[in-house]
Design a binder for these strands. Sequence first.
DNA 1: GTGAAAGCGCTAACAT
DNA 2: ATGTTAGCGCTTTCAC
Lengths: 345, 345
Amino acid sequence: MEPPAPPRRVTIVDVARHAQVSTTAVSKVLRNAYGASPQMQAKVRRAIDELGYRPLAAARGLRGQTYTIGVMLPDIRNPFFPEILDGITGCLEETDYQVLMGPGCNGEKAEARVTEAMIDRGMDGLVLVAPVSSRAHLEHVASVVPTVVVGRHGHSPAYDSVTDDDVAGATLVVGHLAALGHRRIAHIEHHETDPTRIAEMPNAQRADGYRRAMRNLGLDEEIDVVSTSYTQQGGYEGMKGLLTRPHRPTAVFAGADFAAMGVLEALTEAGLSVPGDISVAGYDNTTFAALGPISLTSVDQAGREIGANAARLLLERIADRGKPSVQVKLSPALVPRRTTAPPPT
Amino acid sequence: MEPPAPPRRVTIVDVARHAQVSTTAVSKVLRNAYGASPQMQAKVRRAIDELGYRPLAAARGLRGQTYTIGVMLPDIRNPFFPEILDGITGCLEETDYQVLMGPGCNGEKAEARVTEAMIDRGMDGLVLVAPVSSRAHLEHVASVVPTVVVGRHGHSPAYDSVTDDDVAGATLVVGHLAALGHRRIAHIEHHETDPTRIAEMPNAQRADGYRRAMRNLGLDEEIDVVSTSYTQQGGYEGMKGLLTRPHRPTAVFAGADFAAMGVLEALTEAGLSVPGDISVAGYDNTTFAALGPISLTSVDQAGREIGANAARLLLERIADRGKPSVQVKLSPALVPRRTTAPPPT
DNA sequence: GTGAAAGCGCTAACAT
DNA sequence: ATGTTAGCGCTTTCAC
């Protein structure tokens, strides 16, 4: 027989009455604002504790801030994103800000829905991870609320951005494979048609980095790119295609670990051994790349730092919306594992 | 030279003026509430479209609902949770509700912080996935806001719950292994000390199911449980322990796919082949269980249905907070793959 | 340094 | 069926 009536929430008025001060005073203490004497602070804080008061973010938002940061992730399933999230929350947990995430979205429409929902909920700032929306939409969002874009190249005066240096990452992989003695190094890329995105999305940068690295090593003739997608399926089909080549490659650089999984599957199916017959490298250093039975050579993007930087930039922009936009580019690191070795002799 | 001043947001007053009606009328149309004629509806909707008006959730929440559902996931990294999330969002996307997630939390303190943050932001309902908090805390939360608990056994009149039948899942695994001819089937469980959680957490249920299934098959003597944790590390250590047995098991049932990964690693290290020397099964049918090079026998929890049920129950409870609490228990299915086979002869 | 009073954008009573 | 009015809980002028 529980009374289903939830007890009325403690409000700022209750605190003010209990502490025998004005609501303004309580508000000031809550926000560490100027104009509250030490004894006032103490009195108010005591009352807050005694009453177990917690400010209602929604009500605060109506006039000031909601102390909420929204993070949009394109796909929860991608094991790379938790790292970024850790970086963000790690940086924010010392502050009064709380992080809330939008559910995984794929495609511009879903992204727009989530960003709008976050704006409508009065969020103080947004972190957009690898958004696929048009530049115009991103700038619109940024004009309404402080925004940091993660994992997408291309600058804008409207928002800050944090990316990994994908060209450098691709160069690391190609260099590693070439150093092992490989010459016929193929690449599986994520297919991209939209011209803006070709310039801005990481997948395009990785393919570009691959091509440049090959040329720099004098391997122009060996450049071989299959265009599918950064999924297991895409990797599988891409490898199938590569296996039909008259001269099949001795090494494959998949633009993402997910795709590399499909590559491994296709190779198992074809009865080829890794790295005996063929070497395979991925990108992102996802959780399963490290799993014993897989042990995939990959590129680590330092997701934590990406996230931490994004959070820091966002706080700075919230504090000063007029400041010039900043671009941070972080360097990835190669993680060699057991799927890469010298080519068969 | 962009004017950094974000243009004032369109409010309900603007819409009312534009449509030449009262704000109440607009509000009613927004909420599909009773008392708005068709022509009124049309007029208002036109004005809304023309002005691009979107209601501010925070302001709505101050009086009514925020149309926001909070989902708390203990760990983003667990590849099982996205399924649940898909089920929830799938069920909710036809409605006006928006889903927001709390960042991964581990431990009671982090959970409390997230649930409080969600309550403070005026969320209309909460879905708590596999919470580790005390029963009392869960009931407190549920007394403040409609709540559905997922992945935790044990009923409460205060909240609805949706779970997988973990005992049945464990039985499926043991049955599968026994049918292949195994007798020495060991189990790796997640260590649990808290008495409430022993009764309510899935890990305990799986261990219990294992023991019961073994007994029912007359294998009482062979029961062998190693208590570590549902992590790769835990699986690794657990298997190390099992390998020191005078009679080592011919099959291992790890309570989670994560742990199974560690088991596989320990076996590779020991030079044992899977499933030639020893069979391995996991639980959760996570993404990487299906990966070609791993191909782990596992138990599928039908996460989508779990999520969909949770969302449905939550909407029902939001509509009628007084209704009696409901418990839904779903049946898991075995997914046999290449890590299980008859024992060596 | 402190407090009274006026909103923020919306919904819920209460008229009409 | 429609409009008027009074808040929701907080922050922000602006007096003192």
